[in-house]
Design a protein around this nucleic acid. Structure first.
Length: 941
RNA sequence: GCCCCCGUAGCCCAACAGGCAGAGGCAGCCCCCUUAAAAGGGGUCGAGUGCCGGUUCGAAUCCGGUCGGGGGCACCA
């Protein structure tokens, strides 16, 4: 490029080409010198010396190394954390910043299937591409700490943590996880019986079954989300609101399958309560609160024949208004209570046209089970059938009919409700459809003409509760229930246990084997890692996405040599069967901050001293500090997935004494997204956005007018701009400068390649102010600059400090441009050295390569990575005189300049003495004169 | 339906705790350099803060309403 314009472009102009050379040179220097290595207190990554007390751990959300490579939106957060890390490193802190890869998971597997290669091969290739792309951006990562979840030395510890959780139970009394061995000891000592037998007389299988009910990881035979199109089950968090998989958008069906579950619900209270201790965006906190969904209410027992139906309600105050009950179709008691015959006079609407309740129930259940979540949610018409059974309302002895209906969810509460149509719209709708009575128990206001009344009011038709407002009525009702043994106050969570197995190949194998009785047994730690076997066919068996009756078939079950194994687990060599599932890809990201801290430790997942130093609670964050990463940056899309799971694991590890931090991420910051315009031609086909031109407010691709759309950047929209091409055309520093100046970090904004030139011009001017473009020699002058320049310089230093510390890189950049513009205008002969030696370090966090280059040209032998960062001299921040605008009735009419030390009275006197003001006041007495020190004067007439 | 966030020059964005609406960039315009070409230099123009109302000496900022945009949740008893 430059050789086509040799005559006019000076040899030492800061062009993209020169920037590229500088950037490559410094990247090599940093790598060769381990510039960004952050020493640990102990272990292989310790520098041998005492570590600085002042540390900072900055982390980006774990990237998945996609085969598509990066577009300019991806590095926004990475550059943001890099600027933050660099700024703090320059002020002398020990800064840990690195990046690894979350490389297991569905996309890798799917990509591998498409390209016919092993997922390890494609994943590792993608990682290399990714590293090449981010390296070019000049990110100051400690590359010794790069990790990858697919590395057996990494997932060995993922499996180890799984075993920790497996071997624990939640001690509700102490409110924390404890080793399951303590529970076993308790059972053995207590004399408690299990199915009539004391602990000592139970077989190993029977004991395992009991313990399974307490373990924090347990095997469950509960309804799970089965996605035939994906060939795997997925967690609740991975199902969208319309009942499809987040990944792949396949329909999800509820199926009873034997699966691993993590007892995250045990931590519901702590997961909600500890949100208050975190420096996180309110939006994310509220999403988590919402997801965990804690609600206060009561469990109430209704007798139905010999059985007891337990319901959960948040409205125990409405108990007198319960006119029927509903069980979820999957409820365990349905078969037991369903009667042989319809009772005399059963309403035809209740029978579903069947001759017996059993037929009706069976037909309804069949219909409900084949409905996808989506169908269930789309169709809000209330359906259901009568079981033939009645139950007794404990509070008034009334006998009420029991239905099954799919508007009651099996997974929430007890899977059964008491229906109060007077106060609940869903119940009202059902009651209306089935001709059931409605009894109001809260008095609606005068003139209320709605259906169910959910507002507050005095209780009516409710015996001893009459006249009480809802709050008091609830308390009174719970009191009555507890006193008479019909129920108790309780807290219910919307959060359900975390479905932890997947029927896929590309994930961590479970460190579990089964004996001949099918009892799961933990593999001893010494046998970890359990490595993924090589298989001929690693693609999962998928089905017609609508085939609800299909069965999962994990690829590992077909690895015959691997799946059965002879082991000596203490009682001689026996044959065991391995677990054929793999862990979900959230597993690896649940604890990676801990491995970043101690990535090479072969003996522990993380050395305690190192964990405490980088991630432990710190007094400077207050007495209630939960510890965690100091700044965690990523998109908001992980608000209830990764961020919830990760907090859960951290808390378990904390309870078991493995870590000192109660939370993984002390401060969370959601960066915005870079979006882009896309263009559609009249056929509805996307055209290459780079070739579209604007003419008179319309957009053209060639001569063809095209329609503008706005959204994500992506291959299919043909609007991708890559960091590689930006580095090529402008240089990495220009690209970084531009991305950081586009706006605040947390705001989404449109990409505009044409605007990048502004950042390029700034860096060129700055270069020119310090370097002779013809000779490449520095052209700084030794003279002390004038007062105005020094004032601007120190004001800039003070402002830039604050901006960097608060992630306001756009305004930090603007201040640097402003200062540089001042140099351009006032120092055509070269910048004063004192200014140059400040502006270069101030630029370094944003444009590290250029700053290093200029710093060395200024005569410094040391890298700028560890400072110095200039500090502002207070002397230049205080003005001697202040200009006050004078408002008269709120409008600016004049200006005065007074000494900064002037008192309010002096300012007032000077203002009133001003000619223009005097003319407006016209000899009268102002009603009021407001002097805002340092700001303005307002005279009210 | 419920909850949250955001509306400032043509565009992207500043304005700390209410105090002169503009820091910076893009585009536009003018001039210089070159004139074969600009990703060259210098300068300049530009909004009264979506709309209505309130509080205040004073509102982009606080409050209420409304419109527009974005997001979250949604049969959770």
């Amino acid at each position: 490029m430059s050789d086509t314009t040799p005559d006019t472009v000076p040899g030492h102009r800061y062009t993209a080409e020169l920037a590229g050379r500088i950037e490559q040179r410094w990247q090599e220097y940093w790598e060769a010198n381990g510039t960004y290595h952050a020493p640990n207190p102990v272990g292989p990554l310790s520098g041998g010396a005492e570590v600085p007390a002042d540390k900072l751990f900055v982390q980006d959300m774990f990237p998945y190394p996609s085969g598509a490579g990066l577009h300019v939106g991806h590095p926004l957060g990475f550059i943001g954390t890099d600027v933050y890390a660099r700024y703090h490193r320059m002020t002398g802190r020990n800064v840990l910043h690195t990046m690894g890869f979350d490389a297991f998971g569905l996309p890798a597997e799917q990509y591998a299937v498409q390209t016919g290669q092993h997922p390890r091969k494609t994943t590792e290739d993608n990682v290399q591409t990714y590293l090449r792309q981010i390296r070019r951006l000049g990110l100051g990562h400690d590359e010794r700490r790069r990790i990858s979840t697919i590395d057996p030395e990494y997932y060995r510890w993922t499996q180890w943590i799984f075993l920790q959780i497996f071997n624990s139970y939640y001690d509700a009394e102490r409110g924390k996880a404890r080793p399951i061995a303590e529970l076993e000891a308790k059972f053995a000592a207590s004399g408690e019986t299990f199915d009539g037998k004391p602990w000592g007389e139970l077989s190993a299988a029977e004991r395992a079954k009991v313990l399974n009910e307490h373990r924090l990881v347990y095997l469950s035979e509960a309804p799970v989300n089965w996605a035939p199109g994906l060939g795997t089950v997925v967690s609740n968090e991975e199902v969208t609101a319309d009942g499809r998989t987040e990944r792949g958008n396949f329909p999800v069906f509820r199926r009873n399958l034997r699966q691993w579950m993590m007892r995250i619900t045990a931590y519901g209270d702590r997961l909600i309560d500890d949100l208050d201790r975190l420096d996180w965006p309110e939006k994310v906190k509220s999403m988590q609160r919402n997801w965990i969904g804690r609600s206060n209410g009561a469990r109430v027992k209704f007798a139905s024949g010999a059985e007891t139906i337990v319901v959960f309600t948040t409205r125990p105050d409405t108990l007198f208004g319960a006119t029927y009950m509903v069980l979820a179709p999957e409820h365990a008691l349905v078969d037991t209570i369903t009667t042989a015959q319809w009772p005399e006079g059963t309403d035809e609407r209740w029978t579903g046209g069947a001759t017996t309740p059993a037929d009706a129930v069976a037909a309804y259940r069949r219909a409900a089970s084949t409905k996808s979540e989506l169908e269930r949610q789309e169709n809000r018409e209330k359906t259901g059938v009568f079981t033939g059974a009645h139950a007794v309302n404990p509070i008034n002895g009334e006998s009420i009919p029991v239905f099954i209906a799919d508007y009651v969810l099996a997974g929430y509460g007890t899977g059964a409700i008491m229906a109060v149509p007077g106060q609940d719209q869903r119940d009202w709708d059902f009651a209306t459809a089935f001709g059931l009575p409605v009894r109001r128990t809260v008095q609606p206001p005068e003139g209320f003409d709605g259906e169910a009344f959910t507002g507050d009011g005095p209780a009516v038709n409710s015996g001893f509760l009459d006249g009480l407002p809802i709050d008091e009525a609830k308390k009174a009702a719970i009191g009555w229930l507890e006193e008479h043994g019909h129920g108790e106050g309780t807290i219910q969570f919307k959060l359900r246990d975390w479905l932890f197995s997947r029927q896929r190949y590309w994930g961590e194998p479970f460190p579990i084997v089964y004996d001949e009785a099918g009892t799961p047994i933990a593999v001893p730690e010494s046998m970890l890692p359990i490595e993924l076997p090589e298989v001929d066919d690693y693609s999962p068996r998928t089905f017609d996405p609508e085939d609800a009756d299909s069965e999962p078939s994990p690829p590992l079950s077909r690895a015959a040599d691997w799946i059965t194994v002879d082991l000596d687990l203490g009682d001689g060599v026996k044959t065991y069967r391995r677990d054929a599932n793999t862990m979900p890809n959230w597993a690896g990201s649940c604890w990676y901050q801990l491995r970043y801290v101690d990535p090479t430790d072969p003996d522990r997942f993380c050395e305690p001293e190192n964990e405490q130093y980088w991630l432990g609670p710190r007094p400077e964050h207050g007495p209630n500090d939960p510890g965690g990463v100091d700044l965690y940056v990523g998109g908001v899309e992980h608000a209830v997935l990764h961020l919830l799971y990760s907090r859960f694991w951290q808390k378990v590890l904390f309870d078991l004494g493995h870590v000192t931090g109660e939370e993984p991420y002390r401060r969370l910051f959601n960066q915005g997204y870079i979006q882009a315009y896309a263009y559609v031609d009249p056929r509805g086909v996307y055209v290459n956005a780079g070739e579209v031109v604007e003419r008179g407010g319309k957009y053209f691709h060639g001569d063809q007018e095209v329609r503008q759309e706005y959204g994500k950047m992506g291959k299919s929209l043909r609007n991708v701009v890559t960091p590689d091409e930006m580095c090529e055309t402008y240089g990495a520093d220009t690209f970084r400068m531009y991305e950081m100046s586009m706006g605040p970090m947390d705001v989404s904004r449109p990409w505009a390649t044409k605007d990048v030139i502004g950042a390029q011009r700034f860096l060129q001017r700055l270069w020119r102010n310090l370097v002779d473009e013809e000779t490449g020699e520095t052209r700084v002058v030794a003279d002390t600059p004038d007062e105005a320049t020094l004032r601007l310089l120190h004001k800039s230093i003070a402002g830039v400090h604050e901006d960097y510390a608060n992630l306001r890189y756009n305004t930090a950049g603007a201040k640097l441009i402003e200062l540089n513009n001042h140099l351009t205008k006032n120092f055509p002969g070269g910048a004063p050295r004192v200014v140059a030696e400040a502006i270069v370090p101030m630029l370094a966090p944003l444009c590290p390569h250029l700053a290093e280059e200029l710093w060395s040209k200024l005569g410094h032998a040391e890298s700028l990575a560890h400072g110095p960062f200039p500090t502002a001299n207070e002397k230049y921040l205080v003005e001697d005189t202040v200009e006050y605008p004078i408002q008269v009735n709120g409008k600016v009419r004049s200006r005065i300049t007074v000494p900064a030390a002037a008192t309010q009275d002096e300012v007032k006197a000077t203002a009133l003495a001003d000619d223009k003001v005097a003319a407006l006041v016209d000899g009268g007495t102002p009603r009021k004169v407001i002097v805002v020190p340092g700001r303005l004067v307002n005279i009210v007439l």
